[in-house]
Amino acid sequence: MSTSKFFSSPWRTLGFFLLLLITLIWLLPFFTALLTSVRTNDDILTQGFIAIPKEWTLRNFVTAWTRGGLHQYLPNSFIITIPALLGTLLLSSLSAYALARFRFPGNRLLFFLYVGGTMLPFQVLLLPVFRLTDALGLYDTHLGIILFHTAFQLGFCTFLLRNYMRTVPGEILEAARIDGCGEFRIWGQIMMPLTLPALAALATLEFTWIFNDYLWAIVLLRTDALKPVTAGLATLQGQYVTDWTVIVSGALIATVPTVLLFIFLQRYFIEGLTLGASK
């Protein structure tokens, strides 16, 4: 329908503007944050929030980045997220292949174990995992939290990839087998390339999830210099209690990686969300 034809109906036009209004309200927190970050705290305190700022500044971003510690926290987020993401994708594609393509005792049970584990309130694992990292000497290390994320995300990834791999026609794999291809080569050279769309969707989603994790970061890490940006922001909040311009600027910096990812890979992100819920 062309735009002019769309607006030819008064009801449709009304509906459109109602939708636009709701959307703008939805975006208000973003506008608020952006507007706050370029003002000075004094300006907001003296003039109130709804006022034309007397001065514009980018100093809040600098403060959040340097003294607020984001120059440390943000790289930590990547140091944790990237290995965990690669690890969980690799391992789950192995287990998903086994569950999707082989009939063996315990197949169903394992599938339920993986799916059930994903749905758990993860708080149930909090104390034992805390104790485990301590016992293994991994408490307050990046390796500990990386290993945990890798293992915990296996459930969801295996579930999703297994369902996807089941849709690949068996004849392709059978043909490779007849040609004498080993199972690991079939997995690596046939199944994995065919699974790429699902892997892309999953990677986008998992990146966001691991990157945005807060609970495990505050439970498994104590040293400030090791914290990812979510936990770091909580520290920053305590440090700049009354200066919201710095806190909000820090929050905005923290969102840059996932927002960029969303802008460029929106399609995969949405696909991942849908696949996850509806199979």
């Binding site: 959307t23 973003f30 990157f211 945005n212 807060y214 979510t230 996932t258 969303f262 929106q266």
Partner: peptide, 11 residues
Amino acid sequence: FYSPLVLSLVV
């Protein structure tokens, strides 16, 4: 409407 989903809950 998707956009809030990419922000962490902390942010």
